[in-house]
Amino acid sequence: MGYHTFDAAKASKLEDAARRYRYISREELLWALDVNGTETVADLGSGTGFYTDDVAPQVESVYGVDLQAEMHEQYREKGLPENVELVESDVVDLPFDDDTLDAAFSTMTYHEFASEQALEEIARVVRPNGRLVVADWSADGDGEAGPPLEERYDGDAVVTELRDVGFEIEFWATRRETFLVVGVLNA
């Protein structure tokens, strides 16, 4: 689908903790990632690093992947944790070797990059038994927040798409406005 990317001019909205945690909390994200401190992880569509900052203290290293240099500039101004490396890239062409990542996650950005090519690329860079966590706006929502309904996916579609590229679904749930899917790459 990949309709559009978030407007970097509105990036300050990405730092609104009360609003962001309403849709996926730090605790829920960390539970889904199931990290122990030794992992290399990528935040796909990292923006200003709101969730990257939550994950960074819990892992060895994090790549903040975003297509927009302006988002990285704002993240640098905010201050980067020492173990975060910013990577300007589209998800369909990640600059990582095969099996580089222990996990990857996407918070409210899946609808911006979702395609067979992007998912195959994620499966290429995540190691066998590595995790992919996707939290995004649900097509089953009411559309009061987030992108228009026609730009969203429903959880069933995401589950099918992840299975098609080799992920076994460990958990998935649909909520009022969002869904959460946790996949583990088949060995």
Rank of each mutant, 00 (worst) to 15 (best):
V35E: 05
V35T: 15
T38E: 12
E39Q: 12
E39L: 10
T40Y: 02
T40C: 01
V41L: 09
V41S: 02
D43P: 14
D43A: 03
G45Q: 02
G45S: 08
G45V: 10
S46D: 07
S46Q: 08
S46Y: 09
G49T: 06
G49N: 06
F50T: 01
Y51F: 15
D54H: 09
D54E: 14
A56L: 01
A56F: 01
Q58S: 12
Q58M: 12
V59H: 01
E60Q: 15
S61R: 15
S61A: 13
S61G: 05
G64L: 12
L67S: 06
L67H: 08
Q68K: 11
A69D: 11
A69H: 03
E70R: 01
E70S: 11
E70N: 04
E70M: 04
H72N: 03
H72F: 07
H72A: 10
E73Y: 06
Y75D: 08
Y75Q: 09
Y75E: 08
E77Y: 12
G79N: 10
L80I: 13
P81K: 03
N83I: 10
V84W: 09
E88I: 12
E88G: 07
E88N: 11
D90R: 10
V91R: 06
D93G: 02
P95E: 01
F96Y: 12
D98F: 11
D99P: 02
T100F: 08
L101M: 06
L101S: 04
L101N: 03
A104D: 06
A104W: 10
S106G: 09
T107W: 04
M108P: 00
M108S: 02
T109M: 03
Y110H: 11
H111W: 00
E112A: 03
A114N: 12
S115K: 14
E116R: 14
Q117R: 15
Q117C: 01
A118Y: 11
A123L: 13
R124Q: 12
V125N: 00
R127P: 02
P128K: 06
N129Q: 13
N129T: 13
G130S: 08
V133D: 14
V133H: 11
A135R: 06
